[in-house]
Design a protein around this nucleic acid. Sequence first.
DNA 1: ATGGCGAATGCAATTCGA
Length: 266
Amino acid sequence: MKIASWNVNSVRSRQQHLLDWLTKNPVDVLCLQETKVIDADFPRKPFEDAGYHLYISGQKSYNGVALLSREPLNDVSAGFEAIVGKELTDDLDEQKRVITGVINNIRIVNLYVPNGSSVGSEKYDYKLKWLKLLKIYLEILRASDTPEFCVCGDFNIALEAIDIYSSKVKETDIMASPAERSALQEILAIGLQDAFRKFTKEGKHFSWWDYRTGAFKQNRGWRIDHHYLTPKLYEKAVSCIIDTEPRAWEKPSDHAPVIVELSLPV
DNA sequence: ATGGCGAATGCAATTCGA
């Protein structure tokens, strides 16, 4: 079973790239982030014609997540509230950043973690608050009757120095600040492991490159798109690769898709 | 240190992303 994650930076702008990529890479589940479209305007038909069931949670202009699956998904919910309740969710479901579903007793959680703008900003505080609730959300799922899961998406956090092209990472750099990293480490402490690092120990492997200053050509990137697996699934992982090819296509997303393969029947 | 690029909105210029 193959599960891919791709921040597409607008599903409408990237529709043809997505269809071309899926033709070459007919993954079982594709998790999209930054669809940037309300549900009524999501281009469903081309993906349904390509053989996928769609589960979407979008909003105008910003954010938005979607699950595309060859087989129908069970137990689909969008947002935190369905899992943690209204009280704890507060206003954190206004931005559409979470969608989950179950296939073959494996839960897939698709996330678009807030960017945070800059360290110390209001958006940074929002990001840390969001990550705190994410931990509770995942703890509840871990204790549910579908305890094995793959949490993937755009985390907007580079966990280690080798996940960033520059060796000059400052504590004030968004996506690399100590508070962001420890918030993510606390989440992983519930029992999640980085599928990519099971197979690749060295640096210079990235999933996002700035559109500006020719960053991709010079491989000046960050690895901020991740697949985290519960122990039983981590054991079953047989590969995890970042497909940099579509990043070189014309008018690309600034992110590349990341694909994990599990030795499990679909 | 700054700005650079791209998408959305909505029709010019601004906001946001990372």
